[in-house]
Amino acid sequence: MTASTDLGTGAGEQVIDQPRRGALVLRRLLGNRLAVVGLGVIVALFVLAYTAPLVYHWDYEELDYTAFLAAPSADHWFGTTQVGGDVFAQTMRGLQKSLVIGLLVGVISTAVAAVVGAAAGYFGGWVDRSLMWLVDLLLVLPSFLVIAIVSPTFRGQTWLVFVLLLALFAWMITARIVRGMTLTLREREFVKAARFMGVPPWKIIFRHIVPNMSSLLIIDATITVGTAILAETGLSFFGFGVQPPDVSLGSLIAAGVDSAQTFPWLFGFSAGFLILAVLSVNLVGDGLRDALDAGSVRSRRADRRARGSAT
């Protein structure tokens, strides 16, 4: 309070710094230590996953016939598999896939849920009815069955199609919740004020309605990141998604889980990276939620800290 009061003295006629919402949120996010740590870990994981294979002396497809089920050593950092594959190389390869799949599915499905739910709730009428009909339809369709049926069509295509398919079946329940929240937000006076100002409907949705649901959306996205990484494992079982010899964290965990007690490196490292990735996504999510939530005490404290360090 006092810091900002000092700022204003002698402001006179000059234009005072008016940070836009984006800049303000970013500043608050960076003032949150845990969020910065989470962000750092995610970046580090990406860097590690994409650069380590370049300098490492084994490839994920290579097999070392001199070492089957070898424990971690200087030669094989994370040990080897039953057939002599290098676990470190495979884990890095898997991490690349899983990070991208998890983050993309999380973001895409939440975005679709927000747009569809908010549009249905805000416009009402036939828009609402047809969108909710679609949601109900997708909810009752067994997603695994659909993916199994369409998978031959997409075989050989890029695995990004797989990301879209995963996202396609992950957004419906959130969309329903978003619709319900939109129905109440639509009657709030600030939305009415915007409407009477002449703000177009889509702008109202993106400027007022979606930000006011950000807590829900961020939590939803972070949960989806974790579930998407795991869901991909199950789908790989259908012969779709990441196929051997290619690997993902999910397929590595699935392969290693049986021997977790006897050969812990087969399971432990990939599981550890999965936990690290999901945990840091959650930290960033928490930080983002606090940064967007104007009323949060924690973020105001962080804001003050950021302001203090800036001067």
Binding site: R188, F190, A193, H208, P211, L292
Partner: peptide, 9 residues
């Protein structure tokens, strides 16, 4: 309270 968007500066 309701007439100002709580998420906007």
């Amino acid at each position: 309270v309701a007439s100002l968007d709580p998420r906007m500066p």
